[in-house]
Nucleic acid binder design. Structure first.
Lengths: 233, 233
DNA sequence: TTCGTGATTAAGTGCACACATATTTGCAAG
DNA sequence: CTTGCAAATATGTGTGCACTTAATCACGAA
């Protein structure tokens, strides 16, 4: 394609990956520095830098100033996980999305939620329980707590029409958040809502999001059995 | 720090994020093009490009040539998930790691494994079952199948000393892979190995890795109850 | 020997410029 | 009204250069 010696950063990355794969550069070993590689591969240092940065982001090499670049000894592979709005997730599978509100009330959160949201003991929160359905079948149970002080508009929101999941994404400016995945046994209520046996193993994701240092909301999503979260490395 | 008007790409990114957060740029809206932003912020287009690329990688904006850059309508947040070797994962928590081999044999894989590895019907595979322990407590049960044709060295490996998990990372040149997370109920054997009640909800990760188009190995990791996979957005 | 301390070096970053490439847009022919 | 093609344009990428920053190394003083 390029008759001359210029190489794209993707080409450089491919060459770097090949050398790692073929053990030309062994794990833990120092690799030639950028300028050297640039000379060798016939491209500019900028391009080599771009390529090496990309490889480093995948966790296959480690780079430190002055210390140089070395092949990772224990490649902590970095997987990318997409966290879409549930409606989109369902629609992407070609299924019809629907949502049904189960309950909505302002109440005192349990200690676990209080801890996650770092809220004072007697602070009431907006508690919304709803069910996401795919083609009419229970898909995920959303158990959400929203701090009405941090998100005052939430009091007016109509969660019969739109899930808090989506409402928050649309309404509340993004901030940081943290996510945890685990497994729990379905309780009786959860089993009924999700139309599964009590005690069934459910995949759970818990998210807490904040803006600045202000905690906004925390949610537990219980997925119906056989749900799989999938990604590629 | 910089008295002059030059801004680092991080500063530009911060400004871009601020404008999105403060709804100066609304979801779905087209944002000024790179050259314009460069002029406005007093830096080069290269720098703006670097910043916008970074923001796009987090899924907050979408960029297409000629079409321009727009704020994502449904921000599919991209979380990064670190997949370390289990030993490292345990040691990072300050616990003592140990490993115990349960069984190792060459046998015909069940259909599910055959499907994942795309292997012919009568092809025997290396089947290794082992337990990872943290401070002596069961941590994860590793149920792995290795294609001995693709990884011939595996036949000679001593999996009493090193887990296949770690052995493969050290020995086999990396390739691609795919990962799935789900939840299952503990069977009797699994319950005994993991020292938990039968029927307990277990967090599972399944990985299949390949090199080129050659399937190498597939593994199911059953984590002891209360395991949580954690990340930050 | 140990502890600064400064020189050295490799990566990190910024900039001006040029060209590549993908899309859109608009105009014109059918 | 549709189709095709060319122009315009925003992002994508490469290059050469310069400067910054962090880590290491070597040297000399305590």
């Amino acid at each position: 394609m390029n008759a001359d010696s210029t190489k794209s950063w993707q080409a450089v990355r491919a060459e770097v990956l090949r050398r790692i794969r073929d053990r030309e550069w062994k794990p833990g070993e120092l690799v030639p520095h950028e300028a050297e590689l640039a000379r060798e591969l016939g491209c500019s240092r900028t391009t080599v830098n771009r390529a090496l940065r990309a490889v480093a982001e995948d966790g296959l090499i480690e780079r430190r100033r002055r210390a140089g670049t070395r092949v990772a000894l224990h490649p902590v592979r970095k997987a990318r996980l997409d966290i879409p709005v549930i409606r989109v997730e369902i629609e992407n599978r070609g299924l019809a999305y629907s949502y049904s509100l189960i309950s909505q009330a302002e109440e005192l959160p349990p200690p676990a939620v209080r801890a996650r949201l770092q809220s004072p003991p007697d602070h009431k929160m907006l508690h919304v329980l709803g069910l996401h359905l795919a083609d009419g079948c229970p898909y995920a149970l959303e158990d959400r707590w929203i701090d009405p002080d941090a998100v005052p508009e939430a009091r007016e929101a109509d969660f019969t029409q739109i899930s808090p999941n989506e409402w928050l994404v649309l309404t509340v400016p993004f901030g940081g958040g943290d996510i945890a995945f685990s497994a729990v046994e379905a309780g009786p209520d959860e089993a009924e809502a999700l139309d599964c046996a009590p005690g069934a193993a459910l995949f759970v994701t818990e998210r807490t999001t904040w803006r600045g240092s202000r905690m906004l909301t925390t949610v537990q999503l219980l997925f119906a059995p056989r749900y799989r979260l999938h990604t590629r490395i």
